[in-house]
Design a protein around this nucleic acid. Sequence first.
DNA 1: CGATCCGTTCCGTATAGCTGAACACCTTCG
DNA 2: CGAAGGTGTTCAGCTATACGGAACGGATCG
Lengths: 281, 281
Amino acid sequence: MDRSLRMTEPSRNRVGTTEKSFTILELLQREDGAGVTEVATALGMSKSTVHSHLTTLVECGYVTHHDTQYHVSTKLLRLGGRLRDQSPLYQAARIEMKSLAAETDGVVRLYLEEEDDATMIAQEGYSPGIQERHLGERTPLTESIAGPVMLAERERSGDEGTGDDSTTVEDATGDDDSAADREALDIDDDVRDRFDRIRRRGYAVETGPEGSDRTFAGALSRRDGTVMGALTVTVPGETGDPLSAGDRLLEAVERVELSLTSWYDSHATFSPKHSWHVHSN
Amino acid sequence: MDRSLRMTEPSRNRVGTTEKSFTILELLQREDGAGVTEVATALGMSKSTVHSHLTTLVECGYVTHHDTQYHVSTKLLRLGGRLRDQSPLYQAARIEMKSLAAETDGVVRLYLEEEDDATMIAQEGYSPGIQERHLGERTPLTESIAGPVMLAERERSGDEGTGDDSTTVEDATGDDDSAADREALDIDDDVRDRFDRIRRRGYAVETGPEGSDRTFAGALSRRDGTVMGALTVTVPGETGDPLSAGDRLLEAVERVELSLTSWYDSHATFSPKHSWHVHSN
DNA sequence: CGATCCGTTCCGTATAGCTGAACACCTTCG
DNA sequence: CGAAGGTGTTCAGCTATACGGAACGGATCG
């Protein structure tokens, strides 16, 4: 309509070469390995260019070069793993994740909140029937139970939250509580009711298709109210009574939050450099 | 000494820009976040250059930009996670990892063999006292029990293995079986004896410092003898009798290998494109 | 033995990344 | 209050450098 759209972002950003390398890397990831010409034709680049980028990536250790195929190496996993292991949220949660998974015999997952998205950064336990979730998978806060729990918890301590989430409730219309196509006004009330329920109970429940499994989710927040992430436990079908799983989750959440705040109290003396994702203001 | 050394590798490789970007990324990873000038002074680059690279990395989603600090994002974890989840070794092992961890109440780890290194790609269970291992951590095959197990298994099916490992036994002198400072000749015999023991028993045992914990390791290989990785279970101090953990590991190894070969039988019909790390010859 | 694939190398060229200086902004300190 | 020093950001020019096309080895297939 108006001329506010500039196609392909004229990109006064710089460094298109790096962007190109990452595009190649992501293609290798998607295609699960590829050859030079395959990449060149797929991305519309010349073979020599692709070759240069690939050899560079190999020398940097991010790509392996067996025979005629290039694959992404495990270096990405290592970097991402170190990032995860350093995060205080993971440090505080892993013991509880283990015991929670053992006692409920379910799948426990840890989500990290970043910029209106929830990222799964750790998983403990495994059951073939449970819905698959990939490590590092990033979903909007309005989807898949772990997000709404964080949104509901955000509202509790005022609306300032991160600062730009004055429309948190309205944004959450995308939840799939089998009520995807109601009228907008009803949805707002419905979502608000749901959030109230979550806040009152401390956790949220989501039943899988045909009651195959149940997922309990609780938000992990610091003492000052800032939401850091969420803890989730999914129990298959008719294992034990589901209520105890919810109570057990609450215990775990409290213990993780306790460990988290104590971590911050000990490490925040002279906050080292960036106080770990705490958007200070 | 001789002129075979060319300083800094004149690099007829190409694409130094990409190399620069990755250097910045790795610095951000190590320093756990940094600012523009911090990176510039650390790497000896101008501020504007660093700024360009950082904005590009942010736009690509690999770096987040809060306040004045740049951090690596979870995108690396996502890419690495997908790489892991796609690997048949992980697919075949995760069920057994879960049950093995539950039954032994120990920490189960899965290692992937790649180019004379062992990379830890998955972990199930957690215990605070157990030796830390980071996701994606890459150690030489001569270290830390998981490697030697694979080396011993390699020898079984002839020496051709990957092709360039004619010195596998001699390279394994770095094992820490509390005999780090013996004479070279003895070590060779010692290592050979150790390999024989491993092959006879099917798994290897490593006792932690002061008997704090025990680690059992077994190699995972295909039916044709090619070693794919290793499975490891670490049990704390005096939990149960250690022998049953070893036996339980053997069961798990067999089941994983079974699942692995069946996977290859079903997917290798018209080998899709690269037959997944099987160095075909 | 051509015919086709593949990956790799080479080189000229113009593009695009690098630099240093100037800018805006914020604390802090004199 | 206004220098002083610390950020991150922008701009314009120069030159290094990434790009592309063509030519080169090496397989594999008919």
